Amino acid sequence: MTGYLKWPALLAACFSFWFSQAQAEERPEVAKHVVAYLGTEGAKVWTLRIGDRTANEALVQVEGIDHDWDMRIQKMHVEKTSKDTRYWTTVDGKKFVALIVQGTWGGELYLPGEAQPRPVGYSEGLSQQGNAEAFLTDYLAAKK
């Protein structure tokens, strides 16, 4: 390679490295494990802490339901009380609690427009199928 071709190649390599590092830094921290719940009629709820633990936020995806929220990944607030953990978001300008988990074994899924909650329970098998980094990638791609 002649001298005048080395500098552009070196600059391109540096830019490529910098760009890939900048993209990696844009990914927020997430928990290492996905926690999943299985409900009636095939409903699945996937949860994943996003950001610092003190931010109290999680990604939540509901799957296998006949609803507008099917397969949509949403960032929700998390409130932990002495009785349960509540995942909530804003719907029509109001706080809407979408998931209540008592302990880790049982809970209820609430969907906008539906009169009755759906019972859900922790699923170890489903949780093991979850991939935290892939979940985050899907969420970030949907935001674009």
Score class of each variant (00 low, 15 high):
residue 110 Y to F: 15
residue 52 D to W: 10
residue 35 V to A: 12
residue 121 G to W: 09
residue 76 M to D: 04
residue 111 L to C: 14
residue 74 Q to M: 12
residue 46 W to Q: 08
residue 29 E to V: 12
residue 129 Q to S: 06
residue 47 T to E: 05
residue 73 I to D: 10
residue 80 K to L: 05
residue 88 W to K: 07
residue 111 L to F: 14
residue 31 A to G: 06
residue 21 Q to N: 09
residue 101 V to E: 10
residue 133 E to A: 13
residue 28 P to D: 06
residue 82 S to A: 15
residue 78 V to L: 09
residue 85 T to V: 10
residue 61 Q to A: 07
residue 127 S to E: 13
residue 126 L to Y: 10
residue 15 F to N: 01
residue 27 R to H: 02
residue 62 V to S: 02
residue 78 V to C: 07
residue 82 S to W: 09
residue 43 A to Y: 05
residue 136 L to T: 00
residue 57 E to A: 06
residue 104 T to C: 05
residue 144 K to M: 02
residue 60 V to I: 15
residue 23 Q to G: 05
residue 30 V to E: 01
residue 137 T to C: 01
residue 89 T to W: 05
residue 100 I to Q: 04
residue 74 Q to W: 08
residue 66 D to G: 02
residue 92 D to W: 03
residue 73 I to G: 06
residue 13 A to M: 15
residue 133 E to I: 04
residue 49 R to L: 00
residue 88 W to E: 11
residue 48 L to Q: 01
residue 126 L to G: 06
residue 68 D to P: 02
residue 134 A to S: 05
residue 11 L to N: 00
residue 106 G to I: 10
residue 120 V to P: 09
residue 98 A to L: 10
residue 62 V to H: 01
residue 13 A to N: 14
residue 119 P to S: 15
residue 57 E to S: 05
residue 139 Y to N: 04
residue 104 T to I: 14
residue 75 K to W: 01
residue 61 Q to V: 02
residue 33 H to M: 08
residue 39 G to C: 15
residue 91 V to F: 12
residue 103 G to E: 01
residue 5 L to M: 13
residue 81 T to R: 02
